[in-house]
Simulated assay, not measured.
Amino acid sequence: MVAFLAKPLVTIALCWRLERRDGVALGFTTHDRDLAIGGLVYRAAPGMLPSSITRSDGFDLDTLDVEGALTSDAITAADLKAGRWDGAAVSVFMVDWEEPEGEILHLARGELGEVSIQGDAFEAELKGPTAALDRPAVEQTSPECRARLGDKKCRVDLAGLTRTVQIVAVASEDEIEVDASAADDAWRYGRLRWLAGANSGLERAIMGSAGAVVTLRDPPALAAAVGDLVELIQGCDRRLATCVGRFGNAVNFRGEPHLPGMDLLTRYPGA
Rank of each mutant, 00 (worst) to 15 (best):
L161M: 13
R135Y: 04
S56M: 06
L133M: 13
F122E: 08
E203M: 13
A3G: 04
S172A: 14
L64Y: 09
G255D: 07
R21K: 14
V24F: 07
T141G: 04
G245E: 14
A13L: 10
R267N: 01
V213N: 02
A131I: 06
A44L: 05
E175L: 15
L5G: 00
P269Y: 10
A74I: 01
D32F: 06
L202R: 15
L259G: 01
V92Q: 09
D22K: 10
P100C: 11
A212L: 03
F4M: 10
M207E: 11
T30H: 06
F253S: 09
S91Q: 12
A250Q: 13
G110Y: 14
T29N: 04
K153C: 03
V115P: 00
H31T: 00
L40G: 03
L161A: 04
I75D: 02
S52N: 10
L9P: 00
S142M: 07
W16I: 02
S52G: 04
D57K: 14
E67G: 14
E67F: 10
T54D: 08
H106C: 00
S51C: 01
D218S: 11
L105H: 14
V66P: 01
D34A: 15
L80Y: 02
G208M: 09
Q166Y: 05
R163G: 00
S209K: 13
W85V: 02
R55K: 13
R191H: 03
L232A: 11
C145M: 13
